[in-house]
């Protein structure tokens, strides 16, 4: 390889110095202009930081589940910012610690459903015909079942744990990604550069995942950010029903459910976890909205 390097003017290392002006730089520039989307992004980043640090800062046994019955039902104060619950546990600590459940379930569930759904959707859109029909019809059957009901069924069948919860919610949202991906693949499939790739000798797999998928990513990315929000909501719903993260873990939905019994006298037991869920979902939705605008080619010009 070295015999004619002198003839070559540019080495790979040199080439890497030239900055790639990619589409993502453009998207980020558009995204930055959108103030509400930036607020969403900051909240999401803050939540991720809180979730990661609270895991190491608090001790699960001593701070989160330890019961101090003499302190039960204290009103919000300087010592207990959000008050204490029926077992005397500090609500603020539990909410902060609970962020990791909601976020991890939301993100992992979306990763599962996105990986599975997008793959199926790309295959359906690329091959068309019978393959497409089978995949889409199966998806429709799943869409026909209410998502919480399907989640309950899966949780009931496989037992109650956070991993099963992630898979349950992941499976529930597979059809959504499948249809989005298929719709995004269809216009790209007919492009001339796809035919050019074929002529260059690229196989089906390479065409689908290297050439078509990157060109149809925008709607899938928007779906992902929105999907985290709905994943968190579904996880909280299932926990509220007692089928999500097993007690006494401070999952926000489970905390809502616990506080429900005392809603007349100690409203803060439900207000704060509810607010936490609302702010998280709102932040992801704002971010998703901003991303959609930034990725929309029609607004690019």
């Amino acid at each position: 390889m070295d015999n004619n390097t002198t003839k070559r003017k540019y080495s790979v290392e040199e080439l890497k110095k030239y900055k790639k002006r990619s589409m993502w730089a453009e998207v980020w520039r558009n995204f930055k202009k959108n103030r509400t989307a930036m607020v969403g992004l900051f909240i999401v980043i803050a939540l991720v930081i809180i979730a990661v640090f609270s895991h190491f800062y608090y001790d699960y046994a001593a701070d989160i589940v330890h019961q101090e019955l003499k302190d039960r039902f204290q009103k919000p104060s300087a010592e207990h910012w959000f008050g204490t619950d029926s077992f005397g546990r500090d609500v603020f600590t539990r909410i902060v610690y609970g962020a990791q459940y909601s976020l991890s379930v939301g993100i992992v569930a979306v990763a599962i459903s996105c990986a599975l759904g997008t793959t199926l959707g790309v295959i359906a859109g690329f091959y068309g015909g019978v393959t497409e029909n089978i995949i889409l019809r199966v998806c429709e059957v799943f869409v026909g079942i209410p998502s919480v009901l399907l989640g309950i069924a899966i949780m009931a069948a496989f037992g109650q744990s956070i991993v099963v919860l992630m898979f349950a919610i992941g499976l529930v949202y597979v059809p959504m990604y499948c249809r989005t991906a298929r719709a995004a693949v269809l216009p790209v499939r007919g492009e001339e550069y796809i035919e050019a790739a074929r002529i260059a000798g690229v196989g089906d797999f390479g065409i689908m995942f290297k050439h078509i998928l990157p060109n149809s990513l925008s709607p899938i990315i928007v779906q992902i950010t929105m999907g985290v929000a709905s994943g968190i909501l579904t996880a909280s719903s299932l926990s509220f029903l007692g089928l999500g993260v097993p007690l006494p873990s401070p999952e926000w939905g489970a905390m809502l459910s616990e506080g429900r019994a005392y809603i007349r006298d100690y409203g803060y037991l439900t207000i704060f976890p509810g607010l936490a869920i609302m702010i998280t979902v709102l932040a992801f939705n704002l971010m998703g909205d901003g991303l959609r605008d930034a990725l929309d080619p029609k607004l690019k010009q």
């Binding site: 589409m23 492009e191 550069y193 035919e195 050019a196 990157p214 060109n215």
Partner: peptide, 14 residues
């Protein structure tokens, strides 16, 4: 191998 009529659409934008 083949060269296409319209170079605008024959290259993958990403």
């Amino acid at each position: 191998s083949m060269i296409f009529q319209d170079p605008m659409t024959a290259l993958n934008p990403v």
